[in-house]
Design a protein around this nucleic acid. Sequence first.
DNA 1: CATTCTGTTCAAATTTTCTTGAACAAAATG
DNA 2: CATTTTGTTCAAGAAAATTTGAACAGAATG
Lengths: 172, 172
Amino acid sequence: MRDDAKSAPLSALERESIEYFISFVQLLGMPKSVGEIYGLLFAAAEAMPMDGVVSRLQISKGSASSGLALLRELGVVQRVYVEGDRRDYYETDLDVAHFADVFFRQRLQPRLENGAERLERMENCARAEIDERKPESEQEPEVKALARVRALRSWQRKGEKLLPFILKLLKK
Amino acid sequence: MRDDAKSAPLSALERESIEYFISFVQLLGMPKSVGEIYGLLFAAAEAMPMDGVVSRLQISKGSASSGLALLRELGVVQRVYVEGDRRDYYETDLDVAHFADVFFRQRLQPRLENGAERLERMENCARAEIDERKPESEQEPEVKALARVRALRSWQRKGEKLLPFILKLLKK
DNA sequence: CATTCTGTTCAAATTTTCTTGAACAAAATG
DNA sequence: CATTTTGTTCAAGAAAATTTGAACAGAATG
């Protein structure tokens, strides 16, 4: 039952790669361990089993398992078959774009959609507040509120236009 | 010494605005309270003192103070003078873009720069590893590593090109 | 089949991040 | 000036996110 401290220390290249991807995934709001795993696999010339990930990065089996699952779900890590070995092996292709692509689709897009709904409601609220007070002439603040909602909507639209553009740029 | 529970409850519009900006700032990795404050100020027709923020949002003075400081630093909230009142008042203009702009400049840009340096080092490492083993003919994996570093660099470049474009689009 | 090996799941522990509130400084007030 | 008001800072507490590891399930092995 061989255990920890048994595998080669990380090479300089691997360390750099790992740090590169740690900061990358953190930018996308993902946990550090996911970046470590991806960085290791990216630097690795060969596909690697989960054991390898665990022993080289000194992380727990649990983290490795769920990190790899996530990366696989994102489509940035693939499982490969290695003849004569029962274990699953993992590798990355060179297409880092999936990462960003998934980020935009899964984080930005839902946010934008949810934001659009909320804006709709905000506009209704603002209008309702104005109507309620029509008799009184003290309409100022409510009108201002409506103007704000409209300003916000214009930003929301900008975001909505930006998204497909970014996605296109990521596709080569 | 009037204290908590003294101020009007949030209107529907304010609640929506607050939730809108909570999710927005969280996307940029900022704390919820910052989104609450911004959302309240955005919906408010009038400038508001820190007390107002504290009592309407039911957050602590500390959070309000540092949240407002951050927002001011980002340039998305301004301090305004109100005659006959000792307190500072705060308001937002309608330019939500600052937010995103700051995000890109302060988060993405440094990451890209740091990433570029790291890539440099990675390429050197990869080359060094190749040279070390030149005598042996078993060069395969090292060459592969170099190819990977180069692939990564091409993605890095894409990011670098994307950034100014996004910034431009945000400026109206 | 019983055993070993591989990988997943999830509750508990840990770490990180955010919030609170009390202490403080500075400025205004009377 | 002594007092009150306003706002900041920062250590301690609370909350949220991440990681661990032990228990488990299923597949391969002999």
